[in-house]
Design a protein around this nucleic acid. Structure first.
Lengths: 236, 236
DNA sequence: GTGAAAGTGATCGTATACGATTTCGTACTT
DNA sequence: AAGTACGAAATCGTATACGATCACTTTCAC
């Protein structure tokens, strides 16, 4: 009755669903890079499906912002438009902050210990300079924090945000060693807040600031034009 | 380049889009009431389209939570599941709060005057007891507040939330005179905050509380089982 | 040589047809 | 009389085929 919207969107075994998962995976793991042109016919032939299910899959991916679509032209994997990056990060900071605050009271000590272990691993990655692994662990860490969110709608929005960022390769592209150190420390501070049962507002604010700081770090090292695009949202 | 996701989802003149708009309108204005069974073939016949565009339209509506879908069974207009109502209200309180805070600095005095006029009209509706008009004006009021939000993603989420509530007929169903008076006062307080250039955090919190209060009023007059469903999210 | 215009190719959009799965009614058995 | 099993109807899921629209290339006139 209360599954997430995403889970309901197509029957599990249907070709539409298979096509959706397949194309999505290819985008997220980078087989289809930004700018790659997704032709319905070609995709259908590659996957062994017909055009209709593929078309539906593309539409769903479009709704999630992973591809853009143009009539009689075709679909292309969404590019790294700096403005889009900002919008996504800002939206994610809001929904993820809320999700983390809502999750906090439901996280048990075991999960916290797990998150802490992940965070320590991230610290090691910094010493050996392993950005790829760092990024993966970062996602694991945050998953522990927000996965207990009792509101499936909010959880779904968080997942969509992460997927978009994954598709944009933003976390690895924008890996800044100095920022990464701060990030690990902020993680630990967040865990402390949750452990001590801080009020939801504080947790939400901390989680939101954590992501805003990443955005700021990005803006600081970005080109002037990108910074300019970001200044529209400077009030946040 | 930066239209909302919804606008991009289908070509303007396509039958898919027409079907989507048509069915959506019928749901929101109440021609198709909750529980109404949407059979692909029948809808297609009614609209004069084929099955494929209708199917795509239904899928989009499902992604927005307006209908539920089951394989080989069909689609039904989403019902007034109290849990879903809570989830929707909670999500909306978060994204609408953020949208209002982001809009605030961009709202000029003309727009504020317009909002205030709408709010005074709402006050009159209370005296003449006109819940339907009150509900419509309420939407107008909030539109003025958040429509200036520079982040299209957030704006899109707000619209989706409002659509769901409209489809559920929740605002009219749950109209509580006592609460409505408070609501009008809170609107005025919100306008004052925006006029005086209060910091975004205060505005966000005020906007969020405004919606939470509506939710609380709903819970107070709801049946015990509904209240019980709500207690899961009591931390908010 | 440059510009526009027409033709060609490619891609999406939709309709129709068929197959798979589920549901519901009915008859039969216990 | 109640439960079960079988069958028919209905519905969704997918494939294939055709039409509409747009982008690109080529050609012709100036």
């Amino acid at each position: 009755m209360t599954e997430t919207v995403a889970e309901l969107t197509a029957a599990p075994g249907s070709k539409s669903e298979q096509a959706y998962q397949a194309v999505k995976a290819r985008i997220i793991e980078g087989t289809y890079t930004p700018g790659y042109r997704l032709v319905l016919g070609s995709i259908a032939k590659d996957l062994g499906f017909s055009v209709v299910p593929v078309r539906e899959a593309i539409r769903r991916l479009e709704a999630e912002g992973l591809v853009t679509f143009e009539r009689n032209v075709g679909a292309t994997v969404a590019g790294i438009d700096p403005t889009e990056y900002l919008y996504t990060m800002q939206t994610l900071s809001i929904v993820e902050g809320a999700a983390t605050a809502l999750s906090a009271p439901l996280i048990d000590s075991v999960a916290i210990a797990r998150a802490r272990a992940v965070n320590e691993e991230m610290r090691e990655c910094l010493e050996h300079f392993d950005p790829v692994r760092f990024t993966r662990l970062n996602q694991d860490f945050h998953s522990v924090l927000f996965e207990h969110c009792p509101n499936p709608h909010i959880l779904d929005l968080v997942h969509r945000g992460w997927n978009r960022l994954a598709a944009l390769r933003s976390s690895t592209f924008r890996f800044v060693p100095g920022r990464a150190h701060d990030s690990v420390d902020e993680h630990e501070a967040l865990l402390k807040l949750i452990e001590t049962g801080a009020d939801p507002d504080s947790i939400e604010k901390a989680a939101r600031l954590h992501r805003s700081a990443t955005l700021d770090a990005y803006l600081a090292q970005a080109s002037p034009s990108e910074r300019n695009a970001g200044s529209v949202n400077a009030q946040y």
